[in-house]
Nucleic acid binder design. Structure first.
Lengths: 212, 212
DNA sequence: CGTCGTGGTTAGTGGTCGTTAACTCGACAC
DNA sequence: GTGTCGAGTTAACGACCACTAACCACGACG
């Protein structure tokens, strides 16, 4: 019960502020002095907690990729155990990803923006986690929409990630009414996209969707 | 007819390579020497063509934002003149954006990634062009789906941009068969997303889409 | 044939930035 | 009390980098 009130440790403070700054101005655009200043200490004091600037980015990226994958696996396991239909699992995955996109905007930005600033070893780890997460989605999508080839399903998943991760581009105050409304809207959009991928697989230009 | 074979001038060469490098490693991650080397000259020779590194980025971002907006306006004018339905215009806008996303990947990446590295004056100009482009879409979307509020329509447009701009994340060789297939798939996904935003506006959770 | 603009070159400069070194200071163990 | 350790501090160093200076080649042109 002592662990439930997060009691933000120094490390976590630093990581949080670093994520915000990296997302705002880019990895190379923010100096260690700024990160230190953001948590009340100055400059090289950070080196008591991290091996270097890059180590912070690595921990952030590994952390988010890992949590996305873990969450996805957990939801898959729960759905399998409960005997849910694949469509319900896909729903659950979408919901989980939306929660992430809405609650951890800076991390979502970093996640596909600053990956190349990592050392080879860290980058490979992050890419592996990301790939597993994508594959998790691809499998579910193909169960829900069996007409899709694997390549199509993967492209759809990437596209829907782009859709769901678009939240940072909405003005900071949020032009949308509230969090719930935004989440519901994104959920509908994602499902609509997947559904459109499914129907009329082969040729089928826009015309058949236009005369709704 | 001498102008039709582009005859890539030095400036254009530099801009093209700079766009590629900026997209790969970020604005601060690439040095002027690298950009020079990419076009066969070295280092400060670039300053015969540009006022500075930032001027290159500014020209790239203003260029892409301007071309997107111009293309959108042209399509709108054509559709209005031809008396086309709003749905056909939306189709045309989607097609134009997809062409851009598939043909100018580095610029698409820069477009929403490095905007904050510009001087105030340039950044305001780019943002203004981007805003006009979004508003163009929002108007058309609201004509096609009158049930949407303006805020909802704007969120949908941003989300669909995220979807369409996801192409850079697909592996370089392109997991998809060909360009045409990818374009068609993205087109369907975008229309599906818009359509899903429209139907069941209020509450309407995923359930009604699940029992397809 | 001079001269002048264009598009290069190399060397240098000032500033920034990540990282390390050396030191301080309080908390706690024994 | 004394020693140790964790967590800061300031100062300095070395690398990098955008940009400038000074110089050069050469084609056009009168």
């Amino acid at each position: 019960m002592s662990t439930q009130a997060p009691a933000p440790t120094r490390r976590e403070q630093i990581l949080k502020e670093a994520a915000r700054l990296f997302a705002e101005r880019g990895f190379h655009g923010v100096g260690v002095d700024e990160i230190g200043a953001a948590v009340g200490i100055s400059g090289p004091g950070l080196y008591r907690h991290f091996a270097g600037k890059e180590a912070m980015l690595a921990e952030l990226l590994v952390g988010i990729s890992g949590r996305l994958l873990t969450g996805g696996k957990r939801r898959t396991a729960e759905a399998t155990e409960a005997g849910d239909a694949p469509a319900a699992l896909l729903d659950s995955l979408i919901e989980g990803h939306i929660d992430f996109a809405l609650d951890d905007r800076p991390l979502i930005i970093l996640h596909d923006r600053e990956l190349d600033r990592l050392r080879d070893t860290d980058r490979k780890l992050v890419r592996s986690l990301q790939r597993q997460y994508v594959e998790l989605w691809v499998e579910v999508v193909r169960q829900v929409y069996p007409g899709l080839t694997e390549a199509e399903a993967r492209a759809c998943v990437h596209a829907v990630f782009g859709l769901l991760n678009s939240t940072p581009h909405l003005g900071r105050p949020g032009a949308l009414p509230g969090r719930e409304a935004t989440a519901a809207l994104l959920h509908r959009l994602a499902l609509g996209a997947f559904g459109a991928a499914h129907d009329a697989d082969g040729r089928a230009h826009a015309s058949d969707a236009l005369d709704r």
